[in-house]
Design a protein around this nucleic acid. Structure first.
Lengths: 180, 180
DNA sequence: CATGTACAAAATTGATATATTTTGTACATG
DNA sequence: CATGTACAAAATATATCAATTTTGTACATG
C-alpha cells in the first residue's frame, strides 16, 4: 500500500534480463532496496513476479477504461487512447531486448487467463462506447468492430516500426472506421 | 525449371523442424528424392534454404499482385485477397510448430531485405488500386491507407486465433474503410 | 541426372563432473 | 521494517570427452 517499492523498476529489469536471469539482487538494486526487503515484502521471487505482472495488467486495463470514459474527447480519440494504453504502451518494452516479449504480456502470442479476461472487459467496454456514441450504421456491429480494433492494435504493435507510427496508423484506421 | 522438386515439401519440413534441425535426408525424404539429388540440384543446404525462401517470397508477392489485379472483383475483395495471399496464408505454418516463425518470413519481427522490398511493392500496388477505384475521399490518403492495411494484416496474423477469423476481421476492416 | 554405398571432416548431442550463482532462511543490528 | 552478513540447498553455468549425426564429396551403377 504505502509502496516505496515501484513495479516499474521490476518491469524494466525483467524486460532487460528476462524473468529467469533477473536475480533478486538485480531487482533489489533496481528498486533501490535490499534483497531482504524484497523477501520481507513478497516472500519469494515467484510471488514478486506474479504481483508485478498482475499489477501491469490491472494498471493497463484501468488506464484504458479511463481513457475510454474521458468525457471531453471524441469517440475516435477515446478508442485510440484506450488501445494505446492497452497495447501501444508496451512497444518500448517489447523492443527493449529479446526478453521484452515476456513482459509485454498484453501482446504476447499466448496470453494467460488474466490477460484474456482483461481484454474481454476492454473489448466489451469499447463495444459499448461505439454503441453509445458511434455512427448509427455501426451500432449493430459494435461488438465485431471492437474486437477487430483490439486485434488490429495488438497486431500493429508487432508490425509497426515504432510507437509513433503505431499511433499514426491506428489513428488512421479508427478515424476511417468511424467516419460516416 | 522442369521441377520434379517442389518447394512446398521443403517449407513443410522447415516449419516442422526448423532450418537447423531439418537435415538433407529429412528434406530429401519429404521431397521424394535422394539426398544426392538435392546436392546435384542445389550444391549445399544453405543454397537450398535460400532458394526455397526466395521462391516463397516471390510466389506470395506474385499471387498478391495477381489478386489485386483481378478485374472481376470489387476493390475490397481484391485488397482482402492480396493481403491474405501476402500474410494470411502463412498462419498455418506459423502455428505448425515453434519453428513456424522461421518460415513465415512475411510476418516475422525482423524481415530481411527481400521481404521488405516485396512488401514495398505490394503496398505501392495497393495504393495504386485504391487511387484508381477507391472512394474519392481516400485518393489523397491512398498511400497511408495501403500501408496501414498491410501492417494491420501482418498484425492480425499474430493476434487472430485462426485463419478464418483473420479473414473475417480483415474483411470487416477493409469493408468499413472503403465504405463511403 | 538419378540412385545407393562409402567416407572423412565438421557439427551436434549426451553424459558427467566441477565451479559459480541464486534462492530462501536465519540472525544480529538500527 | 529496513539493512548487512552468513549459510545450506537448489539451480545454473562451464568444461570436457565420447558418441552420434550431418554435411559435403567421391564413385559405381542404370
Amino acid at each position: 500500500m504505502s509502496d516505496r517499492i515501484s513495479a516499474d523498476s521490476f518491469l524494466a529489469t525483467f524486460a532487460r534480463l528476462g524473468f529467469r536471469k533477473a536475480s533478486m539482487e538485480d531487482l533489489a538494486r533496481a528498486a533501490g532496496v535490499s534483497r531482504q526487503a524484497l523477501y520481507n515484502r513478497f516472500g519469494s521471487k515467484t510471488a514478486l513476479v506474479d504481483w508485478t505482472m498482475k499489477l501491469l495488467v490491472d494498471r493497463s486495463l484501468a488506464e484504458a477504461l479511463r481513457s475510454l470514459d474521458n468525457p471531453g474527447a471524441t469517440l475516435a480519440a477515446r478508442l485510440l487512447a484506450a488501445l494505446d494504453a492497452w497495447a501501444g504502451q508496451h512497444m518500448t518494452m517489447l523492443r527493449a531486448s529479446p526478453h521484452g516479449v515476456e513482459v509485454a504480456v498484453m501482446v504476447a502470442p499466448e496470453p494467460g487467463e488474466a490477460v484474456r479476461s482483461a481484454e474481454r472487459k476492454l473489448v466489451a467496454a469499447m463495444a459499448n462506447a461505439i454503441r453509445l456514441s458511434g455512427p448509427g450504421a455501426l451500432v449493430s456491429r459494435a461488438g465485431s468492430m471492437a474486437q477487430a480494433l483490439c486485434w488490429t492494435a495488438k497486431g500493429l504493435v508487432h508490425a509497426a516500426p515504432d510507437h509513433a507510427s503505431f499511433r499514426r496508423e491506428l489513428e488512421l484506421i479508427v478515424g476511417a472506421l468511424l467516419a460516416r
